[in-house]
Amino acid sequence: MKRTHLPLNGLRVLDAAARHLSFTRAADELAVTPAAVGQQVRALEDTLGVVLFRRTTKGLELTPEGEAGLAALREGFLQFEEAVRAMQAGQSSKSLTIAAPRDLTEKWLLPRLAEIARTDGELRFVLVSADDAPDFTEANLDLAVRWGEGPGAHEGEAIESEGMVTVERPGGGANAKIAWPGCTPDDASALVRVGDAGLALDAAAEGLGQATVPELLATRDIAAGRLAVVGEPRPSRFGYWLVAPLPQWRQKKVQALVEALGV
């Protein structure tokens, strides 16, 4: 019989009924009615073309045909259980693979992961750079961070932020603007053009001008006195989101990390 045609529900009922030699007790174990057990057994007998049980004055007993396949059946169910345990092992794993933009990893994620790791010495992190939309089909990712207006096609939670903030070197720097992809000012008015917001922060700290960046990335540099804020933060429809497809998002270790990151 082909694997795709195996009557797994009927075989599960056969195993329970053979152990108890009682449709009633098998039904209690399987949380169904005795009638449902009887129907499953009869359907399995029709499928296999053999009689599996016989009623006697002493009660229910297995036929030789039923007895012949029982050991292999139970070994098969043990293998199923082992397969399920192997697949669920990742739930208890202390290793998480996270994809995030390089600048967010440096300015925000790494310091928080360091704090989290100090609370649990068994945690292990694999960090992957992902400036574009993370591709969960191509990488063994547990969680990703994306910049956008929402979680996109995945489940997710927004990372709290004040929006965008303009910063410069304390005491003022060059009277110019620093540009990075996706941010104003346009390239024509910028003294320096860099590849991402993290480099824009570094350029501002060196006195090359003012950079308008996500407030989330600038917080530590501002607190350390490396950068000074110009004006007030401005709301933005864009932001950083922790995202994952639903199966990954439901993992306990992923939800624990999301909570620990404080979003």
Rank of each mutant, 00 (worst) to 15 (best):
L96G: 02
A244C: 03
R124D: 00
E162G: 06
N9D: 12
F136A: 03
H5F: 11
L208D: 12
S236R: 02
T57N: 07
K2M: 10
R3F: 13
T57D: 14
L257S: 00
K252F: 01
V192M: 14
F77C: 06
L21Y: 04
P181M: 08
P214V: 05
Q251I: 02
A16N: 07
K253Q: 00
T105Y: 06
G172Q: 04
G156K: 02
L227R: 03
A197L: 07
G198E: 06
D221F: 07
T24C: 05
L52F: 07
T119Y: 04
F53G: 08
A205E: 09
K58D: 12
V254Y: 00
R226A: 07
T57A: 13
G195R: 15
Q79D: 12
G207N: 08
G152D: 01
S189M: 14
E157A: 12
A31Q: 14
A83T: 15
T33Q: 08
K252W: 05
L227A: 01
E61L: 11
I159K: 03
R85L: 13
A43G: 09
K177R: 15
E122H: 00
D132H: 09
E67A: 14
K94T: 12
R3C: 10
L8Y: 13
F23W: 11
R102Y: 06
Q248T: 00
L141E: 00
I98A: 02
V258Y: 00
L96T: 08
